[in-house]
Simulated assay, not measured.
Amino acid sequence: MENGRRGKDLRIGDPERESAMRLLGEHFSAGRLDVHEYDERCQQVATARFRSELNALFEDLPEPQPNAPSQQTPAARTAMPPAAGKIVLAICATVMVIFLVVVARQLAPILLIPLIAVLWLYWRR
């Protein structure tokens, strides 16, 4: 066997099948597939073993289509943009600080210390 590769016929796993079903759902909700076509293609996705079997189900459909894993880096598939997470964290922290200062004046210094520690540790990551 050639390291498990046969041209385009790479074996796929559950994440690829789930992604393909999600994309079929987008095409169904856009009206490109009727109920019977959607059901039939989902059944074919569920039994697909190779990438070429998935690609054949999307040949007559526009974007979005399943991407080959070689086109994405592992970090691009799993990582959330760091700036977005830090912005959300900063907004939540600001709201919490304002709440503590306005509503819980006497407890604010006690509650701000763990909040600042958590924020500092998260921000350093």
Rank of each mutant, 00 (worst) to 15 (best):
M1E: 12
M1V: 06
M1R: 13
E2H: 10
E2V: 08
G4R: 14
R5P: 12
R5N: 05
G7Y: 06
K8A: 13
D9A: 15
R11I: 14
I12V: 13
G13C: 07
P15A: 01
P15V: 10
E16Q: 14
R17N: 06
S19G: 09
R22M: 10
L23I: 15
L23G: 03
L23W: 02
L23N: 01
G25V: 04
E26L: 15
H27Q: 11
H27M: 09
F28N: 08
S29E: 12
S29M: 08
V35R: 14
H36F: 08
E37H: 05
E37Y: 03
Y38H: 15
R41Y: 03
C42W: 07
Q43H: 14
Q43V: 07
Q44R: 15
Q44S: 09
V45H: 11
A46Q: 14
T47N: 06
T47R: 08
R49I: 09
R49N: 10
R51W: 15
R51I: 03
S52N: 10
S52P: 04
E53S: 09
L54E: 11
N55W: 04
N55D: 15
L57S: 09
F58C: 08
F58D: 06
F58S: 03
E59V: 13
D60R: 11
L61Q: 06
L61W: 03
P62L: 05
P62C: 04
E63Y: 00
P64V: 10
P64L: 04
P66Q: 07
P66R: 10
P69G: 07
S70H: 12
S70Q: 14
Q71M: 14
Q71H: 06
T73Y: 03
P74K: 07
P74I: 14
P74F: 04
P74W: 01
A76M: 03
A76C: 00
A76Y: 00
T78V: 15
T78P: 00
T78L: 11
T78N: 10
A79T: 10
P81Y: 00
A84W: 01
G85F: 01
G85Q: 03
K86Y: 00
I87L: 13
V88I: 12
A90R: 12
I91M: 10
I91Y: 03
C92D: 13
A93K: 05
A93T: 14
T94M: 05
M96K: 08
M96R: 09
M96P: 01
I98M: 10
F99E: 01
L100H: 05
L100I: 02
V101A: 12
V103A: 09
R105Y: 02
R105F: 05
A108I: 06
L111W: 14
P114D: 08
P114K: 04
P114T: 03
L115C: 02
I116Y: 04
A117H: 02
A117T: 15
A117N: 02
V118R: 01
W120V: 12
W123I: 02
R124E: 06
R125S: 11
